[in-house]
Write a protein that binds this DNA or RNA. Sequence first.
RNA 1: GCGCCCGUAGCUCAGUUGGAUAGAGCGCCGGACUUCGAAUCCGUAGGCCGCAGGUUCAAGUCCUGCCGGGCGCGCCA
Length: 695
Amino acid sequence: MILPVHDRLRAHLTRLLSALYGLDEPSLPAIALEYPPNRDLGDLGTPVAFELARRLRKAPRAIAQEIAGAFGTLEGIARVAAAPNGYLNVFLARPAFLLDRLNPERAELLAAPLRDRFAGKAIVEHTAINPNKAAHIGHLRNAALGDTLVRVLRFQGVPVEVQNYIDDTGVQVADVVVGFRVLEGKTLDEIREIAKAPRFDYSCWDLYARVTEWYEEDKSRLASRTETLHDIEHGGNENAEIGAFIADRIVRCHLETMARMNVAYDLLTWEGDILRLKFWAQAFDVLKASKAVYLRTEGRLAGCWVMPIEEDDKAQGPRPKAQGSRDVKEDEAVAGGLQASGDDEDEATEEREKVIVRSNGVVTYVGKDIAYQFWKLGLLGKDFQYRIFAQRPHGPLWATCSSGGRTDHPAFGGAAYAYNVIDVRQSYLQKLLKQALVAAGHPEGAERSHHFSYEMVALSHATARELGYAPEPDSEEARRPFVEVSGRKGLGVKADDLLDTLMRKAAGEVASRNPEFSEAERERIARMIGIAAVRYFLVKFSRGKVIAFDLEEALSFEGESGPYVQYAVVRANNIFQKLQQREGLDEAALLAALQDVPPGELTGEHGSHELWSLVLEASRLDEVVEQVVRSLEFSVLAKYAFSLAQAFNAFYHRSPILNEEREDVRRWRAAAVIYLRNQLARTLEVMGIDVPPRM
RNA sequence: GCGCCCGUAGCUCAGUUGGAUAGAGCGCCGGACUUCGAAUCCGUAGGCCGCAGGUUCAAGUCCUGCCGGGCGCGCCA
């Protein structure tokens, strides 16, 4: 870890600057720390002298020299130097730096001061797939980002509660119910039978596409959707029972899929429970009391409870589009109110308002979400009941329920921070959520609510073609850079298909290199490699970028990929296996004797800083994680893992470790590689990627 | 119309508290396996960082305007 060094150095420089120039701390510039382009210049550097130049009326170089001259001594710092261009560069005490980090007790001491920076629990909500069909590649992006967020927060010591929101009462479930009952004429018992076959979610995927087609052939058929939806909302009838059954089974399929990706949850929150437990009524009281919403008595919104939308956004001309839940836009509206009235020009001057409760008394989607968000932050004054949804090796998976819950559940909700991992198309709604919090007198709640937004996954033309989809040669679709996924049309790469393909390919690669492996061993390792490939792929792009998913590219195990990083760790591990075999020397024994070995290889006396560069770079994981949490940009983490692996591979190729003849050199190299391997494995863990024993 | 996002090498993308010489993968071309594993490594070629202004000691990064593309804006969810 490098952050303790940053902190110590900043504190020292701050004291130094105020003593040297009589500047009081608040007026000091922030001390930026960076890494000089090469280790000859230094290990850390700061341009602080540039910032002070004007104020002190001195040349940056002179300031840097003064600081260097007055620097004194600081634990862990070997020396400082003023560069001719004005940078102040710092050289670390290299052997101590590495030894500290290889000693668990010392490392613990170093990390301790950074531990208590975060107070309170964070809730991360992710995945939230409509429980009516199989998960697809877009859902995998959500889960991979969400789960990585969970892992980086936990890395920092933040207690995290992972929630998966299940929209069991929405149109999409209703559509599949219509499919089974009306198109297929099935009863609940028959559906139960169908669901016993593997991959029930796949059958629903196809059925859902067929229902959509069926609606399109004759719009009057949408009446059965409306009727079914009504039944589901009210409960106590066969449609509701079927809907509940389907949602339950599909959620179990989704959980299996996500488990394959090393993704797990603490709690499933069901929309049905939010309705049944009248969370909304509670939130509504709060909003009314704080005047955040009010009843419209005239105009076209007469009879609606509305929330004023502040800010400059005077959007008009609504364009009909999406429907669905968290994973909205994949299913475009097929019918029903497709024509916007478009005759409200005369009301252009009217203040913008968002309807929260319709004139018929039914709450909108935003309303339910507001109630949920209030609960997440402990501002609702109401709680769910809880049941155990499934048993897992590491403990039960809990789900909300409306009655008959258990008393021995952990405390859920009431978090200090809430992260909602939902794609960018929901930005508007997420903004309203924060506004509602502010309006209800909880600005700090809004502060602590984060919409983790990301762009969608589309398909490359090549991959769409492979799936049997070819746009009209001269159409607009054909000219676009990618093809949009559509649950409605059933066009998309199913998550399990992708995972199957990846693991099959990985198994082939493993078999060709390790023919002696048992089938079980091969499959186990292939699984780890497959996961590494998808998870790395989904996280390496910045979140604001549309991924044009290309199967061939995702299947690559070479170059910048998850398996590349795994390979580096596996090779490093092999070195130490050999060390044990050849010399009977284990890692602990090797490290124990290190203190007395001349450290020339590490300090650069042998003419190269390469080994030290590896150590320094490997130590930056905590800094990278901090940057990742600050920016919520995980591509940084992926690039870090890759560049570290790359640096190791290059080093490994050039410099013998076990076969090095000079004893001291061999030992320091081995020590540095141990540290690098530990850090790289840790980095992979934060990305949800395992390290195979061999590959 | 208004808001948000994207525009960097042939392709796909990093570069997200403004800092020292703009990077990687893929692809192309050429090299390295009797050595700790070639899922690897080394080398060559490839750039008005969309355009134009501005701020700054310093701009791919911040500000303004424009161009091109995507998304969003409902008594849907």
